Simulated scan of single mutants.
Amino acid sequence: MPAGLNKSVAQLLERISTVRRDFLHKLTHRLTCENQALAIEDLNVQGMMAKPKPGAFLPNGASRKRGLSRSLADRRWQSPEYGTEMLRDINAALNIAPRSV
């Protein structure tokens, strides 16, 4: 690769890095100014998308979670026990809030 092209690519990558850093700084600043508290959930996304192996022991009702990766497009959640229906994000926030510091 010619030296001039290497320099152009390096400058472009630096610009991308700067734009990303600026965006993240502005976003986190806005979030902290607009909210009294922030709670973050550490998700095991790979585990959520993995299909259980046939015949494997599935603790904690995991057999019902088998289709989780396919059903993420469905933004509603319904309790199989009570029939209550709500948006998945609202349900997640209600579950995370009591556990936050």
Rank of each mutant, 00 (worst) to 15 (best):
C33I: 02
P59Y: 05
L31F: 05
T32I: 01
N44Q: 06
E85T: 15
L38S: 02
E14V: 04
N6H: 11
L87Q: 10
P54R: 04
S100K: 01
L43V: 12
A93G: 04
A50P: 02
G83Y: 07
F23T: 14
T28Y: 08
P52S: 01
Q36M: 02
P59V: 15
N91D: 07
A97V: 12
M49C: 14
L72H: 06
G55K: 04
N95W: 10
I96R: 07
R99Y: 12
R99W: 07
A39M: 04
R75T: 04
L43Y: 01
A73R: 13
T84F: 09
E41F: 10
K7W: 11
P59H: 05
Y82G: 03
R76W: 07
I40D: 02
R21Y: 07
N35C: 04
L38V: 08
M1Q: 01
G4K: 02
E14A: 11
Q11A: 14
A73W: 06
A97R: 02
T18A: 09
Q46F: 07
N60F: 13
S8L: 10
P2H: 06
H25P: 00
A37P: 00
K7D: 15
E81P: 00
L58M: 15
Y82A: 03
G67P: 05
L43F: 06
S71R: 12
V19R: 03
D42R: 01
R70I: 01
S17L: 13
E34C: 12
A37D: 08
A97H: 03
E41Q: 07
D74V: 05
P80K: 01
E41M: 08
E41A: 13
D89C: 08
D22P: 00
I90R: 12
S79V: 01
A62L: 15
M86G: 00
P59C: 13
L12N: 13
E14P: 00
A3H: 04
K53P: 02
A50E: 09
R64G: 15
Q11K: 11
T84C: 06
E34M: 11
D42P: 00
R15P: 11
